[in-house]
Computed example of a mutant assay.
Amino acid sequence: MSHASLHTSSSTTSDAQRSLAPYGWDAGWEAEFAPYAAQGLLPGRVVRVDRGQCDIHTADGVVRADTTYVTPHDPLRVVCTGDWVAVDPVGDPRFVRAYLPRRTAFVRSTSSSRSEGQILAANVDHAIIAVSLAVELDLGRIERFLALAWESGAQPLVVLTKSDLVPDATGLSYLVDDVETTAPGVQVLPVSSATGDGIDVLTAVVSGGTSVLLGVSGAGKSTLANALLGADVMEVQAIRDVDGKGRHTTTTRNLLALPGGGVLIDTPGLRGVGLWDAEAGVGQVFAEIEELAARCRFHDCAHESEPGCAVLAALEEGTLPVRRLESYRKLLRENRRIVAKTDARLRAEMGREWRMKSAEGRANFAAKRAGGRR
C-alpha cells in the first residue's frame, strides 16, 4: 500500500471513529472491520430496515443501501436494525456487502406455520421491557419477554410505565414487589413520562451501550422513547385507559442516538412473543426453580410425582408459588415444541415420550375397568 493510500485509510478510520462513536463503534468493531476497510468499504450501523433496503449511519452521514448481497435463506442471518455492516463507499444504489459477527441477537419465533425465527435487533446491551401500569399486570407475559431477553445475551430491565396512574405509593410498592419476584436478578424501575419520575435513573442506565425497547402495543414505548430523546421524535397515538389498547405507533425498528449517550432501538408493539430456542433464557427467568431442581433425588426429575422432588416440596411448603411452576412448565413445553420442528432427534424423543404416556394411560384405564368388573 502506498503512503498516500495509507494516509487516506487512516484518515477514513479516524473519521469513522469520530462519527460512529455515538452509535457504539469501538476498538473491537474496528478490528472486526479491518478486512473490509482494506477493500475500501465503509463501516456503518443499520438504523432502519425496510423491504430489502436499509438506512445506515456512516462517516458520510446516513445512506440508503440495498441488502441483496446479504439476504440468505436463513431468516436469522438477514440484515437487521443494530447490525454493523460494510457498505459500498459510492454507487447508486449502494450495496451492503457483509455484516460483522453479532455480539448479541434478540430473536423470537414467527407466528407462521413454518415456525421460523425472526431477528428483532442485534448488538444490544440492555433489553428494556416496558409494562404499562394502566392495566392489570400480566406476569406470565413479563416472564416470556425476560426469557427472550436473557437468551439474546442482553441484560434485561423491566420498566413499569405510567406509574402516575397508580393512586398511592403503597400500591406502587406492591406492584414493584410482584414484578421483582417474577424477575430475579433484574432491575425493576417504575417511571412516568408525564411527571418525569424515574426517567433520570433510566437515562443513566441506557447511556452505556445499546438498548432495545420491547413491549406490547399500548405499553408506552414511544412516549418513553421521546422522554429519553428529549424530543417528540416518535409519534404517539391516544391509548384507551380502560384496556391500555390503541394504535401501533411504531411500525419499524428504528435506531436513535440518545443526547445523554447510548443508543436506543424502538420496536413496534409485539402482539405475540414466541420463544425461539430459549431454554437457557427460561432457566435464567426461573432461577429459583432451577436451583431447587438441582437438589431433586433424580437428575431427570420431571417435578410431577417423583419421590425426593425438591420442587414439589417447595410447592407444598408454600415457598414456591404454583403460578411460577405452571409458567415454567408452559414455557419449557413451548420452547421444546419449537426446537423439535427443526431438530429431528428431539422430535423423535418427544414422539417416544408421547407414545409411552399414551400406553401408560391406556394401561391405567384398562386396570380401572378390570377393577370395576370385580
Rank of each mutant, 00 (worst) to 15 (best):
A348Q: 13
G230P: 15
A293Q: 01
E349M: 08
D197G: 07
G153M: 13
C301V: 14
W84E: 03
L42V: 07
Q187M: 13
P22K: 03
D125F: 14
W25S: 00
C296L: 04
A367M: 11
T81S: 05
E353M: 15
M356A: 05
E360R: 08
G28I: 05
E143S: 07
E326Q: 05
T58V: 01
K162M: 02
G153Q: 11
L42S: 05
N364D: 06
V233F: 12
E30P: 02
V233C: 14
S115W: 08
L214S: 05
V242Q: 13
L320P: 11
T249M: 10
T12L: 09
E291T: 10
M350V: 12
P184E: 06
T110I: 05
A204K: 10
G196K: 02
V188N: 01
G246I: 08
P93F: 08
E279N: 09
S14I: 10
R337P: 00
V166K: 04
A37W: 10
R329Y: 04
W84Y: 03
S192T: 01
V322Q: 09
V263P: 06
A38I: 08
A227W: 14
T210K: 12
A366T: 10
G117N: 12
S211H: 02
N226H: 05
W150H: 08
R355P: 15
K162R: 10
V186Y: 10
R369E: 06
V188W: 04
L331N: 05
Y69R: 14
E306N: 10
I338S: 03
T81R: 02
Q39M: 04
W25K: 02
T251S: 08
